[in-house]
Design a protein around this nucleic acid. Sequence first.
RNA 1: GGUGGCGUGCCCGAGUGGACUAAGGGAGCGGAUUGCAAAUCCGUUUUUCAUGGGUUCGAAUCCCAUCGCCACCUCCA
Length: 542
Amino acid sequence: MALRVFNTLGRKLEEFTPLNPPRVGMYVCGPTVYGHSHLGHAKSYVSFDAILRWLRLSGYQVAYVQNITDVGHMTENDEDAGQDKLVAEARRRGLHPMAVAEIFTRSYFEDMDALNVLRPDISPRASGHIPEQIECARLLIEKGNAYVNNGSVYFDVASFWKYGRLSGRNVEEMEAGARVEVNPEKRKPADFALWKRAEPGHIMRWKSPWGEGFPGWHLECSVMSQKYIGVTLDIHGGGLENQFPHHECEIAQGECTTGQPFCRYWLHNNMVTLDGQKMGKSLGNSVCLKDLFSTTEPLRDRAGNILVEKSFEPAVVRHFILTSHYRAPLDFSNEALKGAEAGSYKLRDAVREIHKAALTRAVHAKSEPGAQATGSAAAATTLAPGATAPELGATARATGATALEQCSAAAKSDAVRTALTNVVRRFADAMNEDFNTAAAIATVFDFIRQTGTWVREGAPAEDLLAADALMQRLVGDALGLKWQDTAGGAAAEHERNALIQVLVDLRNDARKTKNFALGDQVRQRLAALGIELKDGPTGTTW
RNA sequence: GGUGGCGUGCCCGAGUGGACUAAGGGAGCGGAUUGCAAAUCCGUUUUUCAUGGGUUCGAAUCCCAUCGCCACCUCCA
């Protein structure tokens, strides 16, 4: 099944065909680094991360570029500067705006790393591409698409007939609409700035042919995407709210300078709400990711109502985001997060179970002469690092959609092979239909019911290894779910497990002699340390 | 005010004309298992898809109206 994506240009599902396969040039609007990332950022970048991962797993060589906007918003005298506490704080501490940008750029990557969002191949900074932006503005003036007025440069919207096509807007109608205030320097209200004259109080300023100033808000994306990807992007992603005017302006700038289509597929993610309401700093219900990941007390809104009662690990937040579609709005709430957490941990435990069982049985199979089948040893070798490395996403990334099919082919029994093939098909069908991660996760939940059965019933090592390999591909590589480790390094983990095993053995001895009081004491004291013992038919696990 | 979109069972959320007597997860309940418990497994909770009309042999899915919410028209993922 071919990949279909919902293209905002045309507003319908279209088969995805890159300009120069297997290469794909993908650009996603990055953050403006003036504050810590919040739930909205999480939804956006987790969504595009899933898209990126699926494209790569499908065999595309994706060049992924995402900007860092560090120009244009941090000004000394802007009216909204007073509302931005962080800029206010920066000023109070005497920090340069670039220092503020640096702080929040790092913060952004920290949060995204925690969410297991793959880093872009290139993260260009707007401030690092001023000459390119000046050149673009100059070229647009030369081509008759822009004009200079009093040290600023404006794009003449009337010169580009396609303006408004992406967002389905009619420039004439908008002019009829009541705008709050129209910059008198513009010929038409819909014209937008390519370069703005810097007023005396403006800190971030660069020399240009039109005097000192700074680039317009939309210019960086056109310039930097085309610089690193080429004149025509395959995919441009971003938040729904940026459709107009931001993306519309990007198209205008990009196409007027090159005469070529700017982007083939426009993908827009929807917004988050909190308890059904818009989330916003001004509303006092904004939840920032650092708080959500590590708070030790409930997060409250301005009125003191509890928004989130405890912290949730990044993988749970990621899991929750992926259970909805990227084009659908997602409502965060304490209850929803708790539900996602329970489900996510169920998945985590099942993924760990099949992994452990596969490795254990592979080792046993090796030690039994004659019992070793082809594939088993190789698979065990491939997966062996998984015993010590992070449990997911550590498998070597194969190219092509066949990466998933290879896993199922390695199974020994027909029944398991068929089951794995079905899982691959369902999962791929879901992802190929405009990246339906919710349906993909549903497939994985059905899959863990099967792997659980195979583990209990003692399926052959080859079957378990194949199932485990597929599970890691789906959950780790495609969905990017990587839960926190219970302990530090691999060695520490090993030692810790050995110690717990001693206590478990002692407890089981006590239970055999009906000394339940002692047995329960061991269990309770381990539970107090966060180690939960579970007695099953094949022994005690934790 | 204009434009685009959404509203699914107790909760979150897929599905968008017939395989839907609605995926998957959560929660509750019952059972299996267990010395107890947790986990796991099995079953169950909803003839129902904002509301009211309409089209159709047939609608959660299409049309109209109403209500609510979200986004954009001003920087915002």
